[in-house]
Design a binder for these strands. Structure first.
Lengths: 341, 341
DNA sequence: CTTTGTTTTGAAACCGGTTACAGCAAGGAG
DNA sequence: CTCCTTGCTGTAACCGGTTTCAAAACAAAG
């Protein structure tokens, strides 16, 4: 373990001043070719790398950004969303020389201190907030501290915050229309929680599909769950128990769709042959499922990349005062859980 | 957006010196009660929090640790391992006031610069390395820079590096014995890659089970895959095509087990009724699968916590020169993919 | 050979904390 | 009343970089 070199020592060894070494390190002009060569030589010889903490203090920029994960990110669907998003954003950040600090928390109050210290400790230049909620308290911390924020999902109550989102309404509409056009008379809609922005948008899409085909929505066929496997399972089981078997299901998550399919299976009803089920997300397991799941794909990886891109745009000051945002299209992936009725 | 306060301004406002404010902030002694009260008052009033970058520079500790993810972490099983591990380690770090920096990289060379800058930039106090390989180059960087390392999986070639691991051999042995005791005459073993430490250990366990029951291993029934769904699927399909139907399969990953089951299903063979399949990992989907998968569970979350714990122990200098390590037991989770033959 | 302009270079201040050390005031002992 | 502790507080140096600014070196022009 060699002791860590400092810029001062390199300067001494190269026979120049700290300032000159700094200029060489940052490729600034105003250094004669021979001096530069000499300094570079010494740097290479001792394989010196600058201390990033000191640089951070001096520049008031740390080249690291925070990824704030919702405290409720315990559910599986969130997990898979998270990992894919993480891949996307870290690919971009890595490419641009930024580090990623991930903040999670077990409890509500720890969560708050964790956010505060991240907001005010000067360790991050900007943050991406996942699972943003209406009037999110976390956002206030960051905004008050003057830290640029990009949220995933349109942040209600914060008209000036940049965000990336997915076309939830469009995706839901396409899926619902697909089911209706397959000839299904009724489509059970297993939605997410009522408060969730995405749920609202998906419901809007569901209704739009009916309207487009001049059909009536049966309000009794819209139920609210929590995106979980269980919510899909219980909903279908309940309906079957009451003798009311829907011929098609559109679930607001793949997990709920899998739950629904499992309930059908247990009742001896073959999905993809007698009834149709469509999910939402296209989680990696969707195509291993039996039957392989027809679903609405979200480009999560791309959303991660874009969130990073927007944040860096903001950090580099190249963005104007207007809100930056990008909404991604969804794509209906037809597999084997759907059939003409 | 209020401007960020500095310790100097707080000192001025409280009518004391920086040193005193620092002492109050860090709960050091040698401050009179009334001065302390006064300073705390001002701190609260302006809701001042110290700049962590400056503190880091001064203390040469940043209270953040790095999580180094293998560049090959693109496979699904790694994903699920990763997310669970992340939950564990971040729970612990959060509790102890540490931040987590996640380093991934798309390409090999970017990966190297990313590791180097993390090793030498002074931004992390220690690192946890996932997916460690024989003579891992990354480890050398960190060790040379004098940064404490904990690896996940016993690091071959580094006899002094701390690590956490899981009892791969024991888990494999229990699973294999379970199948043999169910009366299965032959057990197909779909292993991971040959170079992988975990694969080797699991094979050892497989052989131990046969030895324990005084049975002969059929070498032709040990095949090497890559933990993927496809490797399980293709292996079983190939065997069935050659008319050689095993009555039991032990796969070194849940994903491979699912692939194997899918191949059986396609051939009209009912898993859990005619043949038995056991996986490894207990990924979150294992119990949603059809049939719910019998598998060897790894306590991944706990391993994440423990990795963090070991690292902090090392950082706090409370560990002696001997290697720290912990090997976790596995647990056979019996579900519905296994049956008495 | 000045004068002027342009590079190149280094000294010193700064970023915002921590801490060694010295000074000062108060209290107790002799 | 003096001397010594003891406790509290401030000064200044330090962590390792960046950057401003002025001086020095050099080249070109007059």
């Amino acid at each position: 373990m060699k002791r860590k070199m400092t810029i001062q020592e390199i300067a001494r060894l190269a026979g120049v001043s700290k300032a000159t070494v700094s200029r060489v390190l940052n490729n600034r002009g105003g250094v004669s070719p021979e001096t530069r060569r000499k300094v570079e030589e010494v740097i290479r010889l001792y394989s010196y790398t600058p201390n990033l903490v000191a640089r951070g203090l001096s520049l008031k920029r740390t080249s690291s950004i925070g990824l704030i994960v919702a405290h409720t990110a315990e559910r599986l669907s969130s997990h898979l969303f998270f990992i894919e998003f993480l891949r996307g954003i870290s690919a971009l950040l890595d490419e641009r020389g930024f580090r990623l600090i991930v903040a999670t928390a077990e409890s509500e109050d720890r969560y708050e201190t964790s956010c505060r210290s991240m907001a005010e400790g000067g360790v991050v230049d900007g943050v991406v907030v996942l699972g943003v909620r209406r009037n999110d308290k976390r956002l206030r911390y960051f905004l008050r501290a003057g830290i640029p924020v990009v949220t995933v999902g349109r942040p209600i109550g914060f008209p000036r915050v940049d965000y990336v989102d997915v076309d939830n309404a469009g995706g839901a509409r396409v899926a619902t229309e697909y089911l209706l056009r397959l000839g299904h008379g009724e489509v059970l809609f297993i939605n997410g929680p009522r408060e969730h922005t995405a749920s609202l948008a998906r419901e809007k899409g569901y209704r739009a599909a009916f309207r487009a085909l001049r059909r009536e929505v049966d309000e009794g066929l819209i139920v609210y769950g929590d995106f979980s496997f269980e919510s899909g399972y219980e909903t279908v089981r309940g309906l079957l128990a009451r003798g009311r078997a829907p011929s098609a299901v559109f679930a607001a998550s793949d997990l709920a769709a899998m739950g629904a399919i499992t309930a059908f299976k247990e009742a001896g009803i073959r999905v993809g042959q007698e009834v149709s089920v469509i999910g939402f997300d296209d989680i990696p397991y969707a195509h291993f499922f039996d039957p392989p799941l027809t679903t609405v794909r979200q480009p999560i990886y791309e959303m991660g990349k874009e969130a990073g891109r927007l944040l860096l745009l903001r950090l580099e000051g190249e963005a104007g005062p207007e809100r930056l945002h990008k909404t991604f299209p969804t794509q209906l992936i037809v597999r084997e859980s759907t059939i003409r009725s």
